[in-house]
């Protein structure tokens, strides 16, 4: 039962035609490109190896994980190869960019509940798969939830090197110690013990709030302040006046994820059975509701780069 991976993507830079930039991170840039021999549009993440000091082992693990992934809600690497001083990772192109992108362009105050439920269910399916294989994603956030033109949702980026399709938040805090810690679980901040899958569940809860409000809680504060607030304050939730529009089950879902003690958070598998996901709809619904009328990604990216 040999898997027919079908198309073999070429490993020569000359076989790709690079178009516009669609995302950037600390040490990587993402481009839309054409794979000439296969006549297929792809996204290529170009990592500058000179800037990745000595974490080449980390990069190897990230790329290997990405090339062995086999799940509709995760971005798989078609192939990867070195081109001079950079590493090219060829991936499927997700034409609508990230949820962060979409919110900044058209939904600055967040999405409607059925949209949120649909997005989160797809992300959670990805987490169930990753956790089942022993991977922790470490970087769950709206900027890493990518949407394709047909409304398909994929979780991208395994957190080591750069953030695909992500400008704005991370850029501003590039010189601080780890980027913005808004999505980071308390136990990760404290660095006392190792952390596990449950750290992703916290980030998932923060991402739920991000999709509901258009930004993560505390996102207006400097990183050190966020650390203190996350550790000292009660966990954030959906309990403001403006949150009245949300259902009880959504509030419960957020509450279940944002518990400071990681042992008390549900596993991704268990969370997927939460009644909130009864509100989730189809990919087609996403395509019809949130994607309708958005300008092309490259154009949006340029506008966002000026503004954020």
């Amino acid at each position: 039962m040999e898997q027919l991976s079908g198309k073999r993507f070429p490993t020569n830079p000359k076989d790709y035609k690079i178009y516009e930039e669609v995302g950037e991170g600390v040490s990587a840039t993402v481009y839309r490109a054409l794979c000439i021999p296969l006549n297929e549009i792809v996204a290529i993440k170009v990592l500058d190896l000179e800037k990745c000091n000595n974490d080449l082992d980390g990069i190897r693990r990230e790329v290997q994980t990405m090339s062995l992934i086999n799940h509709p809600n995760l971005v798989r690497a078609h192939c990867s190869f070195a081109a001079d001083q950079s590493l090219w990772v060829v991936m499927p192109y997700m034409a609508e960019g990230s949820c962060l992108h979409i919110m900044k362009t058209a939904y600055p105050d967040g999405f409607e509940e059925p949209v949120i439920a649909t997005l989160l269910r797809e992300v959670l399916k990805a987490l169930v798969y990753l956790h089942g294989h022993g991977h922790i994603h470490r970087d769950v956030k709206a900027g890493n939830i990518l949407v394709d033109i047909n409304g398909a949702v994929k979780l991208a980026d395994f957190g080591v090197s750069a953030c695909m399709f992500d400008t704005g938040d991370r850029q501003r805090s590039r010189n601080t110690f780890v980027g913005t810690p808004c999505w980071m679980a308390p136990e990760v901040m404290q660095q006392l013990h190792g952390y596990d899958f449950k750290a992703d569940i916290w980030s998932f809860g923060i991402t739920a709030l991000e999709l509901a409000h258009g930004h993560a809680p505390f996102s207006k504060y400097p990183p050190m302040k966020v650390l203190l607030m996350t550790l000292q304050n009660a966990p954030p939730g959906l309990d403001y006046e403006r949150d009245k529009r949300f259902s009880k089950s959504f509030k419960e879902l957020v509450g279940a994820c944002l518990v400071k003690d990681p042992k008390k958070r549900p596993s991704s598998e268990k969370l997927l059975k939460h009644p909130f996901f009864k509100h989730a709809r189809t990919n087609d619904y996403l395509a019809r509701t949130i994607l309708d009328g958005l300008s092309p990604l490259g154009q949006r990216f340029r506008v966002l780069k000026v503004w954020f």
């Binding site: 490993t11 082992d57 190897r60 790329v63 290997q64 690497a77 190869f81 070195a82």
Partner: peptide
């Protein structure tokens, strides 16, 4: 080898 994931595995 051309494929980075494979060549870096061999190197490891």
């Amino acid at each position: 080898l051309d494929h980075f994931d494979i060549s870096s595995d061999a190197l490891a």
